[in-house]
Design a protein around this nucleic acid. Structure first.
Lengths: 146, 146
DNA sequence: TGCTAATAGTTAGCTATGCTAACTATGCAG
DNA sequence: CTGCATAGTTAGCATAGCTAACTATTAGCA
């Protein structure tokens, strides 16, 4: 029987757990040799498909000039392609190259492997609790429009 | 009745939930006017007490030159004090000023308020699941030495 | 004791990443 | 066709990460 926890205490523990978990998985990314902002933008393009620079900037919560420069670096390193939209020549369409897709999949696999190592020492019940908690968080965040 | 989930799926969901949760709470920090690396270092000093620059760099997982510059900015803005250690004059001791403590407490309160808003829409059972999940993650991370 | 090695920080200089302001090019409304 | 709106880029600033090289201090030991 679990005693009643205060929401305040749960909020603090949740914050700490999420903070350290992200720090733990992000450590894997350095092996790819792609800096964090570029890697994050690349993941949006690889898993979300080709899109405009504005859309990409919005998805990553940065301003267009910041994303423009991140795309510069990704193009320079051959991870994405930048093309003018034929229907609106002001707009550019960013899409992943084969190399970009390959690197992103390697990155995802590394991060998942790292997380699976962590889950490896847990019981089925504990994993089920993590699964439910993840659902709850995602659902709450989706409901809180921002 | 929950069906059997694969660990792979849980790992992906957990990663996504933690990523978006951190993005959500971090958005509160901009109101403080203290950049992210400085705010994070300040929290270590405020909640962990006075310590050397090396200890601080280690806690934040950055190199000493990086932390030296972050401390420069915090000293410039009057949030921490930098003093020479009397017992080892090579070493410096970083401690929070009253202003640093005040700002950090305000930041923590903002983040917690934000998280509590999120937890506010949940049932007691759902919060209990989040509490257990947080415990499990923290325990696993502590057990995995790195 | 006095030389040598180790340790703690800083400085210099590079890259990356965030911003705003100001600009160019294109599209749209009338 | 004129004028405003929109998409992106350029320029310039601040922050934050790194390594290499430096200074100052301490510790080890022959």
């Amino acid at each position: 029987m679990s005693r009643q926890k205060s929401s305040e205490e749960t909020a603090r523990k949740l914050h700490s757990a999420a903070l350290h978990l992200m720090r733990y998985v992000r450590a894997q990314d350095t092996a790819l040799g792609v800096p964090p902002a570029q890697l994050s933008a690349l993941s949006v393009v690889v898993f979300g498909g080709k899109q405009s620079l504005s859309d990409l900037a919005h998805a990553e919560q940065v301003r267009p000039p910041t994303m423009s420069r991140i795309v510069d670096a990704l193009v320079r390193d051959g991870l994405v392609k930048r093309e003018i939209d034929k229907r609106d020549r002001r707009s550019v369409v960013i899409s992943a190259t084969d190399k970009g897709v390959r690197i992103m999949h390697e990155g995802r696999s590394r991060r998942e492997k790292r997380l699976l190592e962590l889950l490896g020492g847990l019981t089925k019940d504990e994993i089920d609790v993590l699964d439910q908690a993840s659902e709850t968080i995602s659902k709450s965040l989706a409901a809180t429009v921002h």
